[in-house]
Design a protein around this nucleic acid. Structure first.
Lengths: 160, 160
DNA sequence: TTAGGTGCAAATCTTTTGCAGAAAG
DNA sequence: CTTTCTGCAAAAGATTTGCACCTAA
């Protein structure tokens, strides 16, 4: 934990930025909630416990800055708010999301299944991949259990 | 074209909705611009040519309705506006995006490469996949050509 | 006649920005 | 001192909603 904060501090300083108390509090909240996909508002409310004087604008500015430094990944699940994910060296950009359309839960898979596809992309389309995003929408294990004998989902007139 | 409109009309009517002139104009714009990923504002401006009296709110309401009926897919590339894609039976949910971080262009690949992965997801995670979204960010062929000998992108201190 | 639709304007919600003061090198 | 950073309040931009009127089975 402290080591990761130290590393982020160095990333900031190497670009001429400071790890202010507000930024540190924000980073700590993100570290403590690494599995979640917090929105700016979520982060704001959690940071307020540590640093009650902080302003929402500062949180936004911090999240923006950390995204630019690729410490965070800013993402969008289509619910109208941006969400933020810490990147660590191991997962880097290689995580995929399972989004349950029933209960709204978002979980992560850490495997990277797309290596061969990225090569094919580069060869067939001349597209150099820097990053990717793979989200699956569907029904999670828990909801599947409750979800016996209901009307099946219809898309374009055919049953899935 | 007319056949597809007819089909959408039936989808609407089967749920008690009408294909009003405004909705039809909106659908036509979407059909005529199927390769693009139009925002609500884009659609609005294009629809105004056909039906100048239409209001932006109606366009939003139509896009929302068609999304619920799975005629459209609503998506978000992180630029702060929702974009809409017509679904047709063939591509259904199986298209992926190549988003160029240099010039912002978005192109589509229609292959579906994820079939085996979806099976694995269901078996290993108990997650029933209804839909997916796969976006690659990177540098497109055109920009690659111009992009010789610049500073490489740095992520987490390592060069990609 | 009655439910669904529409246009307009106002409201809402997320995110960004201007600014004057505070903090840190 | 000078640059970076902050909180606040205002602004901006996208989307939604309330409402009175309209329109078609």
């Amino acid at each position: 934990m402290e080591a990761r904060i130290e590393k982020i501090k160095q990333q900031l300083q190497s670009q001429g930025y400071k790890l202010t108390p507000q930024r540190e509090a924000t980073v700590r909240v993100l570290l403590e909630n690494e599995e979640d996909h917090l929105s700016a508002e979520d982060v704001f409310m959690l940071v307020k416990d540590k640093a009650p004087e902080i302003g929402l604008a500062t949180v936004y500015r911090t999240l923006e800055l950390l995204s630019e430094l690729h410490v965070l990944e800013k993402m969008n699940f289509g619910d109208g708010v941006a969400r933020y994910d810490l990147r660590n060296d191991r997962t880097r950009h290689h995580h995929h999301h399972l989004i349950c359309v029933q209960c709204g839960s978002v979980s992560e898979i850490l495997d990277d299944w797309l290596g061969p596809l990225e090569e094919r992309l580069e060869q067939e389309y001349g597209f150099k991949v820097l990053d990717h995003r793979l989200d699956f929408q569907g029904i999670c294990k828990e909801c599947s259990a409750k979800e016996r004998a209901k009307t099946p989902v219809q898309i374009n007139g055919s049953t899935l």
